[in-house]
Every structure is written in structure tokens, then in C-alpha cells.
């Protein structure tokens, strides 16, 4: 997407207050923020809106974050969008699952916003200049 407009972030969390705060915090940083309450909504929004970054909770009804991540990766339209897992899950096993499924980062709740912002910046740069392999 051309960098002329606002950068769009899709924030996915089943908790309404979490979504509200993410929206307030990220809009203050100059992002456009769209939100989804579960994995299914996230898949549809990601495909239509083509956000620059997706923030994905894990424990959600309907379609959980790991399954949503798998499906995002399988769909050519969304496969290249960097995903940051933002979740209460934080064991080594959870983190390994995030990376195995292709997440760019795994952030454990509770976290400091500046940590999230930093990772979003890195994810955006990953998108512009994919690592050479």
C-alpha cells in the first residue's frame, strides 16, 4: 500500500476495553486503527482493508489467534502482512507456537505501550524491506 495515506493497524482482541484502548493509544501515534473481536472477523477485515500490521490476541471465541494466523498465512492476499501476537499466554511453548506459525513478534500481556510501538515500527520496516534470504 502506498505510504501516502495513514498506516492502518488491525487490532484483534475479544475484550472490548482492550480494543478501545489500543485504538486510543495507536491513533494518538498517528495510525489508522480498525478492530476485530475474533479470528473470523479478523480474516475478513485483513483481506478487505489490507492493514500494514495486525495485532492478534490468542484466546478468542470462534477462531483463536493461532488458527487465524495460520489462515492469514495460507491466503495469498494476507500472507505478507506482518502479525504481532499480543496475548496473556507467555510460556516458551506459546512463544514457539507464535514463531512457528509465522508471527513477527510475540508480546505477553501486560506490556508497556512503548514496547508495542517499537515492535510495530520494526514490523512496518520488515514489510517495506523484507529480509533478504
Amino acid at each position: 500500500m502506498a505510504p501516502s495515506g495513514l498506516m492502518t493497524i488491525l487490532a484483534v482482541d475479544d475484550e472490548a476495553n482492550s480494543r478501545k484502548l489500543l485504538k486510543l493509544l495507536l491513533e494518538r501515534e498517528g495510525f489508522r486503527v480498525i478492530t476485530a473481536a475474533n479470528g473470523e472477523e479478523a480474516l475478513i477485515l485483513a483481506k478487505v482493508e489490507q492493514p500494514q500490521v495486525i495485532l492478534l490476541d490468542v484466546m478468542m471465541p470462534k477462531l483463536n489467534g493461532y488458527d487465524a494466523l495460520r489462515r492469514l498465512r495460507e491466503d495469498q492476499d494476507t500472507a505478507a502482512i506482518p502479525v504481532i501476537m499480543v496475548t496473556a499466554k507467555g510460556t516458551e511453548h506459546d512463544i514457539a507456537a507464535s514463531f512457528r506459525l509465522g508471527a513477527a513478534f510475540h508480546i505477553e500481556k501486560p506490556y508497556e505501550t512503548k514496547d508495542l510501538l517499537q515492535k510495530i515500527q520494526v514490523a512496518l520496516r520488515l514489510r517495506e524491506q523484507p529480509p533478504q534470504t
Binding site: N17, S18, L21, L22, L25, R28, A88, P110
Partner: peptide
């Protein structure tokens, strides 16, 4: 408990 804790921390950050 970690989810509501995060909401409090994000509110502080805001």
C-alpha cells in the same frame, strides 16, 4: 487476570 492487568497498564500508558 493478565488481561485486565494489561487493560490497567494500557490505561496508565494512555
Amino acid at each position: 487476570v493478565k488481561n485486565p492487568l494489561n487493560i490497567i497498564l494500557q490505561s496508565i500508558n494512555y
